[in-house]
């Protein structure tokens, strides 16, 4: 079914977003419900929401340039390193779950989403890989000679 979807006129980015939003909405709802099992934490139990959004948007945005394996691997690794480092350097609430951390996560989510929208054409399988414009010009001038 991959190739069938690849050559469909629906923009690959749109299809990706439909699937991402569907998964995100479902997992957010389920995880929020699971958070109710931690009543002693209060609102802090929802502190994972913004970091999760930041990680997802960053991972998807980087996928446009690094591919669907390397991008999430790097993002996941960076997150694990950040949490481990924050525990080492300070006791108490880990950095991502402090007010500053939440603000940072929100900023990363916004920035990553903007990057993602700017790079949306890269998800189209027919799009040229990398930043080269030379091939685009060659193809367009050759197409003009054809018509």
């Amino acid at each position: 079914m991959y190739e069938t979807a690849v050559v469909a006129p629906m923009h690959t980015f749109r299809l990706l977003m439909v699937r991402t939003v569907a998964v995100l909405a479902t997992t957010t709802l389920l995880s929020a419900l699971a958070s109710l099992a931690l009543p002693s934490l209060g609102l802090a139990s929802l502190g994972w929401l913004l970091p999760a959004l930041a990680l997802t948007s960053t991972g998807v945005a980087l996928t446009a340039r690094l591919g669907p394996v390397l991008a999430p691997a790097l993002v996941g690794g960076a997150w694990a390193a950040l949490v481990a480092l924050s525990r080492l350097l300070a006791s108490g609430t880990p950095l991502p779950f402090t007010a500053e951390g939440q603000g940072g996560a929100a900023a990363v989510a916004v920035a990553a989403t903007a990057l993602l929208v700017a790079a949306r054409d890269r998800f189209d399988s027919g799009a040229l890989p990398g930043p080269s414009l030379r091939s685009s010009r060659t193809l367009r001038s050759a197409a003009r000679r054809l018509s």
């Binding site: 190739e3 690849v6 050559v7 469909a8 006129p9 923009h11 054409d121 189209d124 399988s125 027919g126 799009a127 040229l128 890989p129 091939s135 685009s136 060659t138 193809l139 367009r140 050759a142 197409a143 000679r145 054809l146 018509s147």
Partner: peptide, 29 residues
């Protein structure tokens, strides 16, 4: 079928040029 991009050369499908994003979408339609 516009599933992959050639290294060189060009083609049109029923008058649509798939080397551009909109041309590719039009060709796929």
């Amino acid at each position: 079928a516009t599933a992959t991009v050639p290294d060189n050369g060009a083609f049109t499908v029923l008058g649509h040029d798939p080397s551009t994003v909109t041309g590719r979408q039009d060709a796929r339609r």
